[in-house]
């Protein structure tokens, strides 16, 4: 199984742990992720303005390169995935943008949206299969109560992201089940963590994080798992700014748990002091 792989800037800097664990786990699962040679920053937010095409170019270059390689494009960072997936949808549906972008890029073969981009979790679910994944687990996370945190970027807008049911997703819970862990359902798992506000509206973002973490905690979670470097930072850092002043729950990337369940690393720390 072989895919083109788009890392994005954050995975090369502040979220190296996410990339390291993801690549190590993929290798152990017999999945080849080939990093694209000339990827560029995706632009971080999907632009709604159609009259500036510059922000779409990086996504299209990567999508076209994957197409030329005859491979699906795999992402790990939720924000990159959001931007590339929506850009791909836009170029498929908006003739004007499609013409402008191709007119500018002058690719050997025009890019019309025929490629496909999938998130690492989708790769596990749809390409490998969670049943197959469960077969390969060496150190099942039996008895571990873990709460999935989805965030916004993978789920919404649901029709375009087509990732899962936006109000009632299950992909991360199914993933946890394959790893042998117990998934903890709590009502805030799809609520926004407010990371875009943590730069200039820290208090709002802190309140949002507190709600998410304390809800997961009250439903019996020992740890949170996420798939987004931004949420990850926010959930970790802003927990420190809550009235308790220290984190209530540890937060992991889903790939860290995968790595552990595949027997590639020591057990991750969880809150044991609770019940």
């Amino acid at each position: 199984m072989r895919f083109s792989y788009y890392p994005g800037c954050t995975l090369k800097t502040t979220a190296t742990e996410l990339e390291r664990s993801a690549l190590k786990a993929a290798k152990a699962l017999g999945i080849e992720l080939v990093e694209q040679k000339e990827w560029q920053c995706c632009g971080a937010v999907f632009p709604l303005v159609r009259d500036e095409i510059a922000a779409f170019l990086s996504s299209i270059r990567s999508l076209a390169a994957a197409r030329d390689a005859g491979e699906k494009l795999v992402t790990i960072c939720a924000a990159c995935h959001h931007v590339i997936k929506r850009t791909n949808h836009l170029i498929k549906t908006d003739t004007e943008v499609r013409e402008k972008v191709n007119g500018y890029l002058q690719l050997e073969t025009s890019y019309l949206g025929e490629g496909s981009v999938i998130h690492y979790l989708e790769m596990l679910r749809d390409e490998l299969g969670f049943d197959e994944l469960a077969q390969k687990i060496k150190q099942p996370l039996t008895g571990r109560k873990i709460a999935a945190y989805y965030g916004c970027l993978l789920l919404r807008p649901a029709a375009i992201m087509a990732f899962d049911n936006a109000e009632n997703p299950r992909i991360i819970e199914d993933f946890l089940f394959a790893l042998g862990a117990t998934a903890v359902y709590y009502p805030y798992r799809t609520e926004c963590c407010g990371v875009y506000l943590s730069l200039n509206n820290t208090q709002i973002a802190t309140d949002m994080v507190e709600k998410i973490v304390s809800s997961a905690f009250s439903y019996g979670a020992e740890a949170l798992v996420d798939a987004c470097p931004l949420c990850h930072y926010n959930l970790l850092e802003l927990q420190k700014k809550t009235p308790q002043g220290k984190p209530l729950l540890p937060v992991y990337y889903f790939t860290e748990l995968l790595e552990e369940a595949l027997g590639l690393k020591e057990q991750t720390a969880v809150r044991k002091d609770r019940k």
């Binding site: 994005g8 800037c9 954050t10 800097t13 920053c41 632009p47 943590s198 730069l199 931004l230």
Partner: peptide, 12 residues
């Protein structure tokens, strides 16, 4: 430790 992505998107 704010991820680059966050800073870039804030500016955007």
């Amino acid at each position: 430790g704010m991820p680059e992505q966050g800073v870039v998107s804030a500016f955007r």
